[in-house]
Design a protein around this nucleic acid. Structure first.
Ligand SMILES: [Mn+2]
Ligand SMILES: [Mn+2]
Ligand SMILES: [Zn+2]
Ligand SMILES: [Zn+2]
Lengths: 139, 139
DNA sequence: TCAACAGTTTAGAACTATTATAATGTAGAA
DNA sequence: TTCTACATTATAATAGTTCTAAACTGTTGA
């Protein structure tokens, strides 16, 4: 399969050997037209739907963390209930719909650059992320 | 004690009766000169240090959540390991020092207003929060 | 060809933050 | 004082995540 070569490369560069379980995880994560947000549980469900053989939770966690560390996935801090991940690794911000419990990308072009006029000595900025919480407008 | 009347009011308006355990929690949370960030575990330690009698974990959780719901505390999403809370309820943003695992306030005056040029139909904005992750600058 | 080995998957256990439970305690009203 | 509603507490339950150790697999090289 031609497509798999991309997955194999992603896995190798994350320090993982390309096994069939891991390639299946890649297919679910990176084969879709659009990027998406997910929790581990949601990802496991997606994987179950798209294959007969099941992949253990430990393998899913390990692979997701390796990709996150390599930068192929981002973790989005929303609350302390569960980890949210994002297959969109470009710089962008988020709406979080508290009614639907849904994360929505904000196109980076739709946000004016965030200017912070103070620094912490000896520290450098790794990321600047905006989280806009929204709820149903009943007015 | 004169000071306690403020705590009693905070408790009553949060739907809680002013008991001695809850007033002790208020003292630790709201008596300090400066505002601060904390996890539940850190709060429990602070309480232990400042009193002989111990207060059960359940009471701490319940009281913190009531204050959060009422708006006397804010929850700051950092990661999924633990909940971070903030006694500073004014509008402000944060540095998160990934090296020290430390949350630091950014004075609201030091951040230009965040402009978002898109909306979600039928939703209204509840909050806009900026999280700036920093790490040691070894350069 | 196939034994040895390094790395992988897996089920399940362990861990930890959080929430629920249910028995006991307590502040105030009557 | 007695009654009652609510609080506190220890402890259990829950759930997300990480760890473990045994079975498995793919590759190497004798
Ligand atoms: Mn929460
Ligand atoms: Mn995390
Ligand atoms: Zn996103
Ligand atoms: Zn703060």
């Amino acid at each position: 399969m031609l497509d798999n070569s991309q997955y194999i490369e992603k896995l190798r560069s994350s320090g993982l050997r390309p096994t069939k379980q891991r390639i299946k995880i890649c297919e679910v994560l990176f084969n879709s037209e659009k990027t998406f947000h997910f929790t581990i549980n949601e990802l496991v469900k997606r994987i179950s739907k798209s294959t007969n053989e099941k992949i253990s939770l430990a393998t899913v966690y390990n692979t997701v963390h390796a990709f996150k560390n390599k930068g192929y996935l981002k973790e989005i801090p929303i609350n302390s209930d569960q980890s949210y991940f994002d297959t969109n690794t470009s710089h962008h911000h988020h709406f979080y719909d508290e009614t639907q419990k849904d994360l929505i990308d904000i196109d980076d072009a739709d946000v004016e650059p965030v200017k912070i006029n103070t620094r912490i000595p000896g520290k450098k900025i790794k990321s600047v992320e905006v989280l806009v919480k929204v709820e149903d407008d009943k007015s």
